[in-house]
């Protein structure tokens, strides 16, 4: 058994008040584990979501609108300009991918509005180039570059969207981190209160040991080890409830087609979860020790 004291002078475990502390700790640790798993999943989802939006910028190149051009000439003229822009973009810094949407893709996109294929080749349809920015990308620089080469090209930046999405992502993360912090605080407080009420049940023992000439540190140590063990097993119990339930939800989610983020399987996340019962046990230990010492200091 972990944390087994070398000499258990006071088998406090065997009295019924000892069940209160593990129960409350189990509940709080279960909630905390749920929140941590939830935060990780949501953080990952929001990150991917905004990443998808951020990934795409488009450049629109409108066809020449003058009426005296034949459709063939117009098409050719547009082709030349698009190629020119493609060349410029290929050399621009901070861009990982440049792709012109093929006429087929365009047609497919426009079909609901314009009907079957043949019509489209007859119409002056703008060309669209998709850009995936990467690190080192500078929006203003690209805008200037385009203004020099092709002033008629329109850079559609989704800037508003990107800003909104990162706002949402930020709020969601902030809310979850606050929730975790609050749950952590509540866990610690409940360990503090459970430990204290446990000790008040044992007040007569504390007093008796004191009158028998036990050192304060001896008495405090007995109760600290006891509380630590109770809280540790409570924490393990809480995790034992929360992890399988999270796993079940995850399994059902995968079957329903969710993407389960890889960060859940990382050793860092496992370590974070493992730390919870240890931390709670330490809090219980410190609380018990300090509470007993405080009670003892009031005795003669």
């Amino acid at each position: 058994m972990a944390f087994r004291p070398r000499q258990s002078h006071l088998p406090l475990d065997s009295d019924s008040s000892s069940r209160f502390l593990p129960a409350i700790v189990a509940l709080m640790v279960a909630l905390l584990t749920f929140a941590l798993v939830g935060l990780t999943v949501l953080q990952d989802a929001v990150g991917r979501w905004s990443g998808q939006i951020e990934g795409s910028l488009t450049v629109q190149i409108p066809p020449n609108a003058s009426a005296d051009l034949s459709p063939e000439d117009r098409d050719h003229e547009l082709r030349v300009r698009v190629d020119e822009i493609l060349d410029v973009l290929a050399d621009a810094p901070g861009i990982s991918r440049v792709e012109e949407l093929s006429p087929e893709t365009m047609a497919a996109l426009l079909e609901p509005w314009l009907g079957p294929n043949e019509v489209i080749s007859e119409l002056p349809i703008p060309r669209i180039i998709e850009i995936t920015p990467t690190t080192g990308f500078n929006f203003d620089q690209l805008e200037t570059l385009l203004a020099e080469t092709a002033p008629e090209a329109i850079l559609d930046d989704h800037r508003i969207w990107i800003e909104r999405i990162s706002d949402v992502a930020f709020s969601v993360e902030l809310a979850l981190i606050t929730l975790i912090a609050v749950l952590f605080g509540a866990t610690i407080l409940s360990v503090v209160f459970a430990t204290r009420s446990g000790l008040s049940i044992h007040r007569n023992i504390i007093e008796l040991l004191h009158l028998m000439g036990a050192q304060d540190t001896y008495i405090a140590g007995q109760f600290a080890r006891h509380s630590m063990r109770m809280a540790f097993w409570g924490g393990i119990l809480g995790m034992g409830i929360a992890l399988p339930v999270s796993g079940l939800i995850g399994y059902l989610g995968i079957r329903a087609g969710w993407d389960i983020p890889g960060s859940i399987y990382s050793p860092w996340f496992a370590l974070l979860i493992m730390i919870v019962p240890v931390l709670v046990a330490l809090v219980a230990r410190i609380t018990a020790s300090r509470t007993v010492l405080k009670v003892l200091r009031r005795m003669l």
Binding site: I205, G213, Y218
Partner: peptide, 17 residues
């Protein structure tokens, strides 16, 4: 101490020492 056996109750002063 009610949750300790007769033996442990009597042993307490020795344990403390």
């Amino acid at each position: 101490i009610n949750h300790l056996s007769t033996f442990e109750n009597v042993a307490l002063p020795l344990r403390v020492a």
